[in-house]
Simulated assay, not measured.
Amino acid sequence: MAQDRTLVLSVDRDDDIGWKAKIESPVVGRQECLKAATTLALADPEDSDVNAIFSAVKIYDELVAKGEDAVVAVIAGNHLHMIEGDRKIATTLDDVIKETRPTSCILVSDGAEDEFVVPIIQSRIPVASIRRVIVNQMPNLEGTYYILKKFFDDPKISRVVFVPLGLAMLLYAIAYILGYPGTATIIVIGVIGMYLLYKGFGLDEFIHNIISALQASMSRGKFSFVTYSTTIVLTVIGFTIGFFTVLNYYAADNSLGVLLYVMSFIYGAIFWLIIAGLVTSIGIIIDVYINERENLVKVIVFPFFVTAIGIILYGASAFILAISSVTGFPISAAAGGTYILYSTLLGLACAIAGVIIQFVMSKRQAETQKEAIIETI
């Protein structure tokens, strides 16, 4: 009967060994792990991952001294994108397990962040124990200042905190110099608000996925590369026109509330955003039709839903601006009711048409698959 083998695993979720020490994970074996810890310590002596790796080696030595069969390894994720990093950790762990063939795992972590990957590890190998390495520090004011300084020196953190604040302050200064102090305040609040929504709704990951899809479509020669590029241009145009629409109505009447400014932005931008959504949908449909035709039924509804949502938003923005008697708005209050009614009906009709087409295609696909199965029998 084969002896049980324990994998002592140190997880560097934010890839400090790659980012700072230029060491590619996985790192397997006692000597290689010590070399990686030493290199990282020379690159950044205050990094907590150094202690985690040394602790993993210490646990490995203790197990070996007891006569147990053990192996030590370090795996890392991604320094800037946690989703990609977790996927990398899963793939790397599979390679380590395939190479070392352990029966259980002891996870060594330098903090709660690394333990987010526990479900990933448990799905591949039983976790017998989790050891968290805590570095003792003197809790005085100077130490707190130093910790905060190191915290903000991390490019991953500084990008999130300093960039939006710096941009907001810069826009405020520009608007103030140009003689629009009231507008400057609105710009700062708007920039901070958009950034909070951007982070709150996870749009950063969404945009990152779009960029990744753009890179993948370009490298694979897909048609969607053209449509993704066009979508970015159309989206920028839409946001620009929406922003200028807000400024136009603000110049006419600066007493409008936040809701009316949002509605004026939608009214100005929605046409271009609808076109951008349609262009993206068409590119996805063409790629799926060429490469994965069996999945066409899942994406055929995209352009219908994009059009439906866009039309309804357009009607809603026109109606709210019209009944609010916004200065310079070309639609009267009476016509606003007609806009919301017809846009809602047209939007629902588009959505229903998409669902019907998807249902018909799904039914035909099921019948085709059934006939193919009967023919093989």
Rank of each mutant, 00 (worst) to 15 (best):
Y198C: 14
V226G: 02
V188P: 04
S219R: 00
G238I: 06
I211D: 01
S219C: 07
Y250Q: 15
R220K: 13
T240H: 01
D204V: 01
M194D: 11
V226F: 01
A252E: 09
T235V: 08
V191L: 10
T183P: 00
G190W: 15
S255G: 07
G221H: 02
I186G: 05
S212Y: 00
F225D: 10
Y195S: 06
M194W: 09
M194F: 13
M194Y: 11
T235K: 00
A252Y: 06
G200I: 06
L178E: 02
Y195E: 11
I189F: 07
I189G: 08
F225P: 08
S255R: 08
I187G: 05
T185A: 05
H208M: 15
V233P: 00
S219T: 10
I241H: 07
A216R: 14
I232Y: 13
I237D: 10
D253V: 06
F243M: 00
I189R: 08
Y180R: 15
I186Y: 01
F223P: 05
G193F: 03
I177H: 10
A216F: 13
E205D: 09
G182W: 00
T240Q: 00
R220H: 05
G242S: 03
Y249D: 10
F244V: 10
K222G: 03
I192T: 03
P181W: 14
E205G: 01
A175E: 10
M218Y: 15
A184W: 13
S255Q: 14
Y249W: 08
R220L: 09
Y176R: 02
F225T: 07
F225E: 03
Y250L: 14
V226P: 08
S255T: 15
G200A: 12
I187D: 03
A213E: 12
A213C: 03
G202S: 08
A184M: 08
G257Y: 10
G200Y: 15
G242I: 02
T227R: 10
Y250K: 04
I189A: 13
F223V: 15
S212G: 04
V226T: 07
V236C: 04
Y249H: 08
L247Q: 12
A251L: 09
T245D: 13
F239G: 00
I177P: 06
Y180C: 09
A252M: 11
T240I: 06
G242Y: 00
M218K: 11
G179M: 01
